[in-house]
Design a protein around this nucleic acid. Sequence first.
DNA 1: TTGATTAAGTTACACGCTGTAACGAAATCA
DNA 2: TGATTTCGTTACAGCGTGTAACTTAATCAA
Lengths: 232, 232
Amino acid sequence: MAMERRNTKARGAAAGPGPRRAPGRPRDERIDEEVRAATLALLREGGYGALSLEAVAERAGVGRPTLYRRWAGKPQLVVDTLVRSMGEAPAADTGDTREDLVSGLSTLTAAFAGAVGRALPGLVADLAVEPALAQAFRERVFATRRASMAAALARGVARGDIRGDIDVELVLDLLAAPLYYRVLFGHAPIQGRTAGDVVDLVLRAVAPETAPAQRTAPPGAGRPRGKRAGRV
Amino acid sequence: MAMERRNTKARGAAAGPGPRRAPGRPRDERIDEEVRAATLALLREGGYGALSLEAVAERAGVGRPTLYRRWAGKPQLVVDTLVRSMGEAPAADTGDTREDLVSGLSTLTAAFAGAVGRALPGLVADLAVEPALAQAFRERVFATRRASMAAALARGVARGDIRGDIDVELVLDLLAAPLYYRVLFGHAPIQGRTAGDVVDLVLRAVAPETAPAQRTAPPGAGRPRGKRAGRV
DNA sequence: TTGATTAAGTTACACGCTGTAACGAAATCA
DNA sequence: TGATTTCGTTACAGCGTGTAACTTAATCAA
């Protein structure tokens, strides 16, 4: 929201030639795509630090002022590009609490393995400097993911897998933070099983006091206990 | 380790005038302190982005080349300064598992409220670019803290408060990550009770299968249940 | 005292990136 | 035809970086 300098949607409302059209030469829509593709490529190659609007302009075959007509600056371009590359990717509704949560976290795992992972550390620095940018990031990246994860938790509560008195915001942080933590500091790898391991731990933390009738999949179901052991 | 350009310790081994002394004009030790003080002040005022070696030199009344003789660059100066300002601050050994873990996390809470919190987002960006710097950061900031938290967990295992088959590295991430997550993205505040809330959740996650004899303080002891409720 | 050695301060420089301005050419609408 | 807006190009000032060159200062060894 308000990420681009001027919203293209304000010109033609629906698809096709809208009834009202702004005067003047229209923007070349293909430039947006070429710029975003160049941004993703440069992020994957050298990370956020190696990305300069000068390099993006050259890679996309575009003049630098053209970029500034569409985005306020480098972090805005990156946020806008990453949001579109990540998609919505909400947690699924499978009827199994654990599976829903793991599916939500797995989209993070996948994103962190690509351009998003290379971009995040540098982007965090700019988020801390520009509050408006941080808000846009939270609305466009966090909000939908957290909402769908919260819905999965609520289904778990209704199902009896999760206590009713949990602090949802804190539990959401406990679920996602370890993945962000590892991608930002690189002290430990994010593996295929990491999301599942985190969910297993958190589900134990929020399980009801008295063990409920195990209606769906209790924490740790489907995976042998021995696999998680042995590092003390 | 290898954070400074040349280690001052290599000149005089013990306190006082050592037996061997490097030739030439000795370094002015007070300059190190003045530079670090200027660095902390500038970090608190404007964060990592507003900190330039030019500004540090001016604030400390020192020439810029003098800084480059002692530190390899801005991130090295910041890491070195933050490490000394944070101290060791290990988790205490009180005999109470929960209290030990909370005390360890509370040092993070305190640090994040000051210069460390202002510096961390920008520093993360440089850590991702310079692997040697990231390793130095992990060794000097993470290692001691994680070691003392791991010791607290081990005491909890021996005490019967914690299962013996936990993945220690993952549990350590689960404990610290929410605090880093909040300070880096700013989506939720870090309050006085946050560390305790996180520990309470994690202790539930790692509690033994069969409720053990409550020898010391079980998860949630000492705080009324109602306080944590009501946000679903 | 003399010479060697190293730090400190000052000044200066090239480099890269930023964000904007100015210009002419092109595309669209009224 | 005229108004409007985009696009590409070129140019510019500003800022911080990292290093070099030079002079002065401080210390040790002979």
